[in-house]
């Protein structure tokens, strides 16, 4: 069900968003409002369009109809608009996507240097500060391939923190990790939730959703089926689809 009215506190607003891949209708009439500081978990079966949805929010994918507004800026094809929001919105990927030919420190300092035009020394000290926040500062001179999956994902999160992203998008951040490393990444994400950061997380980790999420959104077949607090959604799902999905993963 579409949510609440938009007000000054709304950081992300999707109205009537549709997307097609060729002839395949992958996002159907998505309406979504996200308030500042809200933590949202999106779950659903594979192929339901969850990743596509959050990739549309930071402009990595283009939607065909409807409007997406991030912090008041409407997303269009123009590079200027995309550039305006990308500095504020950060994304953590399933496959970490660190730059393998740079050290961890250089990875984290890369965007501040080239996007925010920060001097090298300042960028590196900021990078070290944020690496310390995710407890990985002693690996600063290593290369991504020398780190475990969990460590690499924490570096990816540090990358976003260093850009002072107030909106963070997580695309299945723990799906590529071995089980013993999932906890360390989730711990970092839980710690982030304590700060005033807007988080939209696509994940199957329902424990995380229960602990941290203000809202859980269930998507299926390209549309939002249900959106509710974690308590309500997990215990009193409104639709059969939701119930079916929950029965498979819980």
């Amino acid at each position: 069900m579409p949510d609440t009215r938009a007000d000054a506190d709304t950081v992300i607003e999707l109205t009537g968003v549709n997307k097609w891949y060729g002839n395949f209708h992958v996002l159907k009439q998505i309406d979504l409002m996200v308030k500042r500081g809200e933590r949202i978990v999106i779950c659903g079966p594979s192929g339901s369009g969850k990743s596509t949805l959050i990739r549309c929010i930071n402009g990595l994918e283009r939607h065909q109809t409807g409007a997406i507004r991030v912090q008041g800026v409407k997303l269009t094809k123009r590079a200027k608009d995309l550039h305006a929001i990308r500095g504020q919105v950060g994304m953590v990927f399933q496959n970490f996507n660190l730059y393998p030919h740079m050290t961890i420190l250089e990875n984290v300092a890369f965007a501040p240097i080239w996007v925010n035009k920060m001097p090298l020394v300042k960028a590196q000290s900021q990078a070290m500060h944020h690496l310390a926040r995710v407890q990985i500062q002693d690996q600063a001179d290593k290369y991504p391939s020398q780190l475990s999956g969990g460590q690499q994902q924490r570096v990816a999160i540090a990358r976003l923190l260093c850009m002072n992203c107030r909106i963070m998008l997580f695309d299945e951040p723990t799906s590529a990790l071995d089980p013993e490393m999932i906890k360390e990444v989730l711990d970092v994400m839980v710690a982030l939730a304590a700060e005033d950061i807007t988080m939209i997380c696509v994940t199957h980790e329902m424990g995380f959703a229960r602990t941290v999420a203000d809202r859980v959104i269930f998507m299926d077949g390209g549309e939002i089926v249900e959106s509710n607090t974690p308590q309500e959604l997990f215990e009193h799902p409104r639709y059969d689809r939701t119930q079916l999905f929950l029965s498979q993963i819980l």
């Binding site: 990308r86 500095g87 990816a156």
Partner: peptide, 13 residues
């Protein structure tokens, strides 16, 4: 890997 380009783009590089 295309993912790295995605990551860089998502930061606005």
């Amino acid at each position: 890997d295309a993912g790295q380009i995605d990551a860089a783009r998502s930061f606005g590089v």
